[in-house]
Simulated scan of single mutants.
Amino acid sequence: MAENRASVYAEGVPCWVDAQLPDVDAGKRFYGGLFGWDFEAAYGSSVWARLDGAPVAALGRKTDGRMPTVWTVSFATPDVEATVRRIRTAGGQVVTAPTPVDGAGVAALAVDPEGAVFGLWQAGDHPGFGVRHRPGAFAWAQLYARDTETANTFYGHLFHEALFGPDAVPDFGRAPVSDVFPEVMPPHFLVHFGVEDCEAALGAVSRLGGRVQAGPFTASYGTVAVVTDNQGASFALLQR
């Protein structure tokens, strides 16, 4: 079922995802074919992906070939400067300092103590997802960590109410890297998009030039397959 966004997502809730790609037009063809997304120009060289008119993601062009081709999840914060201070206190690092984005909001990029990269978003005119928890939209973010206790301590300090509070409905899990990937894989977040039929979606990924990395396998939150797009960005398909 579709879930409409609130005016602003609560602190610590995944509120946006974006992909940094070598070729945005190729990304539009891939994700438009896979999820039925439409696209419109956003800030800078980025485009917003829309599903039935609602914003669900952004695709941006990599400005440095040394940067990874990745999907990044951003967590909502009402005060990005305060969150950045807590990240440093808890043993994380800030990669990109809080930066205003054309009135849409303020973005920052950080890494946790094990090196997993994530974003922060303080909403302005753009609160985040217009729809989630449905096929073709964001469904889950899984952190694959070396030490899940370290991850729980760090993110519990950072986003306690969203993860462990009485009203918590997490969209964010933690698991050991070795559960799915080779042990040499660095800790990282894996963005999941909802699908109605995982096997059918895997066929579409292959037809569109992507490939299957792992699965399908059964997780506590559904049937999951890890794939890459036609430019090497990893993400997951989630059938509830």
Rank of each mutant, 00 (worst) to 15 (best):
Pro14Ala: 11
Ala41His: 02
Asp147Ser: 04
His188Ser: 09
Pro182Phe: 13
Pro100Gln: 04
Thr72Cys: 05
Val56His: 07
Leu143Ser: 11
Trp71Glu: 10
Ala82Met: 02
Arg29Leu: 14
Thr228His: 12
Trp140Leu: 09
Pro113Cys: 04
Gly165Asn: 05
Gly27Val: 08
Leu120Cys: 00
Val184Lys: 14
Leu51Glu: 00
Gln239Pro: 02
Pro170Thr: 10
Val184Ser: 15
Tyr31Val: 01
Ile87Met: 01
Pro127Ala: 07
Ala200Lys: 04
Ala108Arg: 02
Val111Glu: 09
Gly194Glu: 03
His157Met: 11
Glu81Phe: 06
Ala41Trp: 00
Pro170Ile: 03
Glu161Gln: 13
Cys15Pro: 09
Ala41Pro: 13
His160Phe: 12
His192Ser: 10
Pro100Gly: 05
Val177Trp: 08
Ala26Phe: 07
Lys62Thr: 12
Trp121Asp: 01
Ala168Gln: 08
His160Gly: 15
Glu199Val: 13
Val177Lys: 09
Val212Lys: 14
Glu161Gly: 06
Cys15Trp: 08
Val47Leu: 05
Trp121Ala: 01
Leu238Pro: 03
Glu199Thr: 13
Phe35Tyr: 12
Arg5Phe: 08
Glu11Asn: 12
Ala54Gly: 04
Gly173Thr: 11
Val56Ser: 08
Thr77Arg: 00
Gly156Met: 06
Trp71Pro: 08
Gln142Arg: 14
Arg5Gly: 15
Trp140Cys: 10
Gly124Cys: 01
Lys28Val: 09
Asp25Met: 11
Phe172Asn: 10
Glu149Met: 11
Lys62Ala: 13
Thr148Trp: 04
Gly65Ser: 14
Val226Ala: 13
Ala2Cys: 03
Gly65Lys: 14
Ala145Arg: 06
Met185Val: 14
Ala76His: 00
Asp25Cys: 02
Asn230Phe: 05
Gly103Asp: 01
Ala97Glu: 15
Leu158Gly: 05
Gly103Val: 01
Val184Arg: 15
Ser220Gln: 13
Tyr43Met: 14
Met185Glu: 14
Pro216Tyr: 02
Ala42His: 07
Phe35Thr: 05
Val191Met: 11
Gly232Val: 13
Gly32Ser: 03
Leu190Gln: 12
Phe35His: 07
Gln213Arg: 15
Gly173Glu: 12
Arg85Val: 11
Pro78Asn: 10
Pro100Arg: 03
Val94Lys: 01
Trp37Glu: 06
Lys28Thr: 07
Val84Phe: 00
Thr228Met: 09
Glu199Met: 05
Phe75Ile: 01
Thr89Glu: 15
Gln122Ala: 00
Gly92Phe: 02
Pro182Ser: 12
Arg211Lys: 11
Ala57Ile: 06
Phe235His: 08
Ala19Asn: 12
Ala82Cys: 03
Ser74Met: 13
Ala141Asp: 10
Ala225Gly: 01
Ala104Leu: 12
Gly105Phe: 00
Gly103Arg: 00
Glu196Thr: 10
Phe189Tyr: 14
Trp121Val: 01
Ala42Thr: 05
Arg134Gln: 15
Ala42Met: 09
Leu34Met: 05
Thr96Val: 15
His133Asn: 15
Thr69Ser: 11
Val177Phe: 08
Ala141Gly: 10
Arg146Ala: 12
Ala54Arg: 15
Thr89Asp: 15
Asp38Met: 04
Phe172Trp: 14
Ala137Met: 09
Ala107Met: 15
His192Ala: 06
Gly119Gln: 05
Arg174Val: 14
Gly36Ser: 01
Asp23Met: 02
Ala58Arg: 05
Trp37Ile: 01
His192Met: 07
Gln142Asn: 13
Phe138Pro: 08
Val84Asn: 04
Pro14Tyr: 11
Asp23Glu: 11
